[in-house]
Every structure is written in structure tokens, then in C-alpha cells.
């Protein structure tokens, strides 16, 4: 039932936002799949207030290029360099809630991607798990 809280489009947007805040393709194979599985687990287990924050911040961040950059595009329609510009502008914004928006997705991406065995190996964590986290095992094959 909780899975209905996020549409497929909203999930794709959250995954894109997380990927933009922490591009992990250099050391994680198919990070979008990991983020998809993480999001599915998060929706199933996190408090509703957290999910509400992810949903609202996801929409705001997706639609903010018009206001922040003056570009009539969504976040998904921006080039990589423009995304970076936008994220940097938001993170330094004078309004607290605005600068918290990208940080939420950065935190989610960090939890999803940096706890993987390949990430822990890369960052020298010992002792480390050699198996993938349970939430990743239980997830369906591909990101939505």
C-alpha cells in the first residue's frame, strides 16, 4: 500500500536527483538500480513524515530551474553543468528550507550508495560486509 505513495515518475525523479548529488558511476555498477531498490525500501519502511519531505522536496527541486536559473526547464531537462550550477546555488541559498532540499537527496544517495560492499572496499572500511545489503537483495531487478 505504501508503494502507492510515489508514482513511477516521482521515483524516477528522486533517483535522478540522488544521482546528481552523488554521481557514483565510477565505483558502483548501475547506481540507478541501487537507488531504485533503496527508494523502494525507504517507501516501505521510513516514517510518513520523511516520505512526505522526499515527495515535496523532490517536486520543488524538479521544478525550481525556472525560478533559480530563469530557465523554463525541469531539473531533468538541464545539462549536467547546469544541474551542478543549480545544486550549488540551492546549497548556498539564503533561505534555510531551500538549501536543505538538495542536502536531503545527498543524504539519501550517501546511505544508498556508500554502504555497498564495493563502496566500502573503495573507502577502506574494515571489517566490511562482503554481501549486498538485504534491502538490495530483496529489490526487483531494475529501477522503475
Amino acid at each position: 500500500m505504501r508503494q502507492l505513495l510515489f508514482t513511477r515518475g516521482e521515483r524516477r525523479r528522486v533517483i535522478t536527483l540522488c544521482s546528481a548529488t552523488l554521481p557514483a558511476g565510477a565505483w558502483v555498477e548501475r547506481p540507478e538500480r541501487v537507488l531504485g531498490a533503496f527508494l523502494q525500501d525507504l517507501i516501505a519502511t521510513a516514517p510518513l513524515s520523511t516520505l512526505l519531505g522526499v515527495k515535496v522536496f523532490g517536486w520543488l527541486l524538479w521544478l525550481c530551474p525556472l525560478v533559480v536559473l530563469g530557465r523554463p526547464r525541469s531539473f531533468g531537462g538541464l545539462a549536467a553543468s547546469e544541474r551542478q550550477l543549480l545544486l550549488d546555488a540551492l546549497a548556498a541559498h539564503r533561505i534555510y528550507v531551500v538549501r536543505e532540499m538538495p542536502l536531503l537527496f545527498k543524504a539519501l544517495a550517501s546511505f544508498a550508495l556508500l554502504g555497498l560492499p564495493e563502496s566500502q572496499a573503495r573507502f577502506g572500511v574494515e571489517p566490511r560486509d562482503i554481501t549486498a545489503p538485504a534491502w538490495l537483495d530483496a529489490a526487483p531487478g531494475d529501477a522503475p
Binding site: 545544486l87 542536502l103 545527498k106 550517501s110 554502504g115 573507502f123
Partner: peptide, 25 residues
């Protein structure tokens, strides 16, 4: 901090964050 928490604390987003993580050690 575990690297997951450290990343959330570091400045920078996108490739600026991955550059920070490169020197986490």
C-alpha cells in the same frame, strides 16, 4: 564517522562531493 555519514557532512554536491570523498582518508 562511517563514510555514509561523512558524505552527508561534507560540502559540495555532484562531482564536487565525489572529489571531497576521494580524500576522505
Amino acid at each position: 564517522m562511517p563514510v555514509e555519514l561523512l558524505a552527508a557532512r561534507l560540502p559540495g554536491l555532484g562531482h564536487a562531493l565525489t572529489r571531497q570523498l576521494e580524500r576522505h582518508d
